[in-house]
Write a protein that binds this DNA or RNA. Structure first.
Lengths: 333, 333
DNA sequence: TTGTATGCGTTATCAG
DNA sequence: CTGATAACGCATACAA
């Protein structure tokens, strides 16, 4: 059991089992025309020899690598860890390997896509909020990847498939919840206001709120998608503001910004959440459920989204998908 | 610029440049014996044709994939995100691709290693605290990977290379810091007390403390490496305990446990940190620096550790490495 | 159900 | 410095 060798090839197994090399290949294929006896003999021989098909050679010959690239440029948001966990686990279960590609800045998109295509990935999945759509489009034009999926984010790229949580339903749910609770003066706290960012949640929320109440919603932009930037922005907004001028709720684009907002309110401004100001987030990261925050937020249907991704990879789904998530009411509203 | 095709092969470039296929290969190799003129011609032709070497075919022919598998089973700790970011970025810069492999339970180790070896990775890097050393050893025996590196964790596996923060120095620094600050009754809060876990930090701290003060250090074990488990354990310990029986500092095995401890103290027990009880962590995750926690912790030298990993991959380093980190004193002590 | 040629795109190695 | 031969390990198509 110890002298197993990795350089056993299908030929070796074939010889040991007394069949041809091609029968060995069939034995490892799900629905192949092969007798049960032959398959058993082959599998037994493979077991004792310690043989496992070489996926590299297989990919080269078949033009299918069973590899998908996960491309991201945002490692500061804990939500990415949740996404990575779900993606790698479910893809692995379905037989897909995952190549993790780090994309440093936006203009690195072509390099990331190039790396993916050089490894012959069957698809590239982009996760992350800080992508420039146009940069992505030009990168895609220069270096073709069989399938390009934008995951957990809105995008209008042609030649691209989007799988995301339905922001329209989500922001309406949040707005309805806030109106039910009696809040009337929300401020929307978003991430950076770059030209390229879609900021779909912001526009959806503000439009719906205005339609329902007739009043506009002021919007703020943090300089980055992290809590430090949110702390800075919220402190700057509220410092020295009198209680009756203050918003009664901060609607945040995601949890990490909401966490920063809460920290600013409590630690820098001495305000209570939700008594003085309420806060909502988006994503339902683990920290949102901790007793220290108890953040009211909105959970994306990651498992269902990943199942859709599997359909895309299988080729049975070829259009954009927007799935409804779920409001998670907690103590901050 | 738009009709670039991915199925351009070295032969096409060779034809376009008027050289042989092998000269094309040389043009893309760093230190190859090729005239500057030939290389320029080839590179120009490749540029216009949109050619990029196929890494799959390259791996098959050369027996070097330039791929390293990152194997982990713990996606609940935000510190993993920091590790992933550093690893993928620095490996990418050095020309390595990263295959992210999810390891569900301990007995899945052989499956993860098998997947890695089937893709012919040049090395596998294991990150994560919940690994069973013996399981890893048997998995390694069954399925050989060229190099197996245990990263950011202690291990004694033969045939394995460890790159980690020096826990001995670290725990002494923490102990010295606490003694300086006047703390005298620490309790060590560790993760699960499984047979396999090394719990190196715990033994190191308790032994050093005993040596310096002559008093033993009680130890607690949370049921998991997450904050919820830590909250439960700390609450159970201190609930109803009189102030003079209480420890004056909780020394935690890592930050996520420390965060849970703080939440328990503040939210469930109504105690103040550090006035009633101090807390220390390990890792310096981003949350530790937030104003809500201001956790005194210890930062692992991740960049330096990753540089050592690159040396291992290059073959210039072949022994275990333990690097000193840095104490980060903050508000919880 | 099983065996046989042929090709996937590259590199190691040797010849010129 | 450059060209040529022989793998690398498997899959596809087709023939038996």
């Amino acid at each position: 059991m110890d002298d197993l060798n990795d350089s056993v090839t299908a030929d070796d197994v074939a010889a040991a089992a007394g069949v041809s090399r091609w029968t060995v290949a069939r034995a490892f294929k799900k629905d192949a025309s092969i007798s049960r006896k032959a398959r058993e003999r082959v599998l037994a021989a493979a077991e004792t020899l310690g043989y496992a098909p070489d996926l590299l050679a297989s990919s080269l010959a078949s033009d299918r690598s069973n590899l998908v690239a996960i491309i991201t440029n945002d490692f500061s948001n804990p939500h990415k860890l949740v996404l990575l966990e779900r993606l790698t686990r479910m893809l692995w279960t379905a037989g897909w390997g995952t190549l993790l590609v780090h994309m440093s800045d936006s203009d690195d998109a072509s390099a990331a896509l190039l790396a993916a295509s050089q490894r012959r990935v069957d698809a590239a999945v982009v996760i992350g909020t800080r992508f420039d759509d146009t940069v992505l489009a030009t990168a895609l034009g220069a270096r073709r990847v069989k399938k390009l999926v934008i995951f957990a984010r809105y995008s209008q790229n042609p030649g691209t498939l989007t799988i995301a949580c339905d922001d329209v339903i989500a922001m309406r749910d949040i707005a309805d919840h806030l109106l039910d609770k009696g809040y009337r003066r929300p401020v929307f706290l978003a991430g950076p206001d770059t030209q390229s960012a879609k900021l779909h949640r912001k526009s959806t929320f503000t439009e719906y709120w205005q339609a329902r109440t007739g009043t506009p919603v002021p919007a703020l932009h943090a300089d980055a998608y992290d809590s430090a930037a949110a702390i800075e922005r919220v402190t700057r907004l509220l410092d020295g503001q009198s209680p009756d001028q203050r918003p009664d709720v901060l609607v945040c684009e995601n949890d990490i910004i909401a966490i920063g907002a809460i920290d600013a309110l409590r630690c820098h401004l001495g305000l209570r959440v939700p008594q003085d100001i309420a806060v909502t987030g988006f994503d339902d990261i683990p920290l949102a459920a901790s007793p220290a925050y108890q953040l009211t937020t909105y959970r994306q249907p990651i498992t269902a989204m990943t199942e859709k991704l599997l359909e895309v990879l299988a080729g049975t789904l070829t259009h954009d998908v927007h799935l409804p998530g779920r409001l998670i009411p907690r103590g901050t509203t």
